[in-house]
Every structure is written in structure tokens, then in C-alpha cells.
């Protein structure tokens, strides 16, 4: 069991929400070592929204997974909301995610056996919150799905599923939202709606946002954009533009 960690709030309030220091991630495969992340240094302030762009295979999703505590780094340090990941076990990371991180996937990843209401309630129930169902219902109302509470994912359209996923990600009012191409499986119009909704709720909750996207328009809505290439953060995109490169 992980040790309880007492935080010094004054320091916590000054620390970035997300801090990746020289993060490397190397995976073993039959073909040999694969260096996915090659020394990522990234600091994201509280309440900041950061867009991540880059070609396929550049390590964007892996960086997100590392930030979520779903992948262990080979070297380097990950600190989120003042908590260093290297001191936590797998279960400790899961517990941390419950309270502090919400994730939105491209493929929605709703639980097929549960209704929309139950899907949203899961993180609340895992957190031991007593009125999980009521809160989940409120969350779904906030994404205009009050009339879909008892629908299963198979009965929802892509856009509706992603709205459920959004409601689920924000259900516990997490400090950090990670979104991996949330509009990748949606048509343009629906995608825009989802993005609008996401930024709206984020602003309301003042959550920190780390968002992977291929859409420049979406990336532009973030406070800043970073460019990932071959496992490294190259110059931030806006600085590249300013430098005329």
C-alpha cells in the first residue's frame, strides 16, 4: 500500500500541474528496442490548456499515457498535481487517477454492459461518493443527454457516446483532463460540438487540459501548442511560426 503523502499546499500551488522531466520510454520488442519517448521535458500550469500535435507514431498517445500513469517511464520523472509517480504502485496510480485525472479517448471506450448513466457514475462510485448516480445524472444533463440516461452505448450515436465520455471524464471534477483525439471518430460538425462542450466544461471547472489533435483549429483553441516528433518535443508550434520555420 502506498504511503499517505502529505503535501505542502503552498508549494503545491506554485508547482505546475503536470511536470515531465527528461522522460524516456523504451519498449522491448522482437525487432529490438523501440524508443518511443526520448527525453520529454514539459511543464503545464494549473488551468492551462495545451494542444499536442505531431505526425503519427511521434509518441503523442504514449506521452498522454505516461501522464495518466498508465505507462511507466524508463527514466525521468513525472509529477502530476504535486504527486510524483515513481513512488506509487499500480494501484496507487489507479487511486490517484480516480480523484485527479479524467481521460477522453478517440474510441470513446464506454463500458458496453452499462447504461450512459452508469458509465458516468463509475468514477464517482470508485471514489466512494454516496450520491454517484445523482451526480452522474447531473453530468449527463450538462452535456444535453438527460433523455439518454438509460441508453446503452450501442444505442447511442458517435457524438452521443463521446458526450457520455466527456461527462464521465469530468464527473469527479478532476484537476487534469487528458484527451486523445476526441474528435477522431466523429464527423466535422459533431466533432466541433464536442470540442465546444469540452472547452466549455473545462473553463467552468478550471481544469488543466492536455489535448492531442490533428485539427489545427482545435489546437488553436488551446493556450499553447507543443509539437512532438519522433519522441521529442520540438520547438513549440507557435514559436516555430513566430520564427518563420
Amino acid at each position: 500500500m502506498p504511503e499517505p503523502v502529505e503535501l505542502d499546499l503552498s508549494v503545491a500551488q506554485l508547482e505546475p500541474m503536470v511536470l515531465l522531466e527528461d522522460v524516456h520510454l523504451t519498449l522491448e520488442s522482437r525487432a529490438g528496442e523501440v524508443n518511443i519517448l526520448r527525453g520529454i521535458d514539459l511543464a503545464i500550469e494549473k488551468g492551462e490548456s495545451v494542444g499536442v500535435v505531431g505526425p503519427s507514431g511521434s509518441g503523442k498517445s504514449t506521452m498522454l499515457a505516461v501522464t495518466a500513469g498508465l505507462e511507466r517511464t524508463s527514466t525521468g520523472r513525472v509529477v502530476v498535481a504535486g504527486t510524483a509517480y515513481d513512488g506509487l504502485t499500480e494501484d496507487g496510480l489507479a487511486l490517484f487517477r480516480r480523484h485527479h485525472i479524467g481521460i477522453v479517448f478517440q474510441a470513446f471506450h464506454l463500458i458496453p454492459a452499462m447504461t450512459a448513466l452508469e458509465n458516468v457514475a463509475v468514477p464517482l462510485e470508485l471514489s466512494g461518493i454516496e450520491d454517484a448516480i445523482e451526480r452522474a445524472a447531473a453530468g449527463l444533463s450538462a452535456v444535453a443527454l438527460a433523455d439518454r440516461l438509460d441508453h446503452y452505448p450501442a444505442q447511442l450515436s458517435g457524438g452521443e457516446q463521446q458526450r457520455v465520455a466527456l461527462a464521465r471524464a469530468f464527473a469527479t471534477e478532476p484537476a487534469l483532463i487528458l484527451a486523445d483525439e476526441p474528435t477522431g471518430n466523429l464527423d466535422m460538425a459533431t466533432g466541433r460540438q464536442i470540442i465546444d462542450l469540452m472547452f466549455e466544461i473545462r473553463a467552468h471547472e478550471n481544469s488543466t487540459l492536455l489535448l492531442i489533435t490533428h485539427d489545427p483549429a482545435v489546437a488553436d483553441r488551446c493556450d499553447r501548442v507543443i509539437h512532438l516528433n519522433d519522441g521529442r518535443i520540438t520547438i513549440p508550434a507557435d514559436e516555430a511560426v513566430a520564427a518563420g520555420t
Binding site: A94, R97, H99
Partner: peptide, 16 residues
């Protein structure tokens, strides 16, 4: 497996 992975992302421990 996908459901289990999703639950883990949402904070379910291995014991859950």
C-alpha cells in the same frame, strides 16, 4: 479486456 482497461483508466484497482 477493453472494459477492464477502461475501468483501470477510471481508477479501478486490480482488486476491484
Amino acid at each position: 479486456t477493453e472494459t477492464i482497461a477502461t475501468l483501470k483508466c477510471l481508477g479501478a484497482t486490480s482488486d476491484v
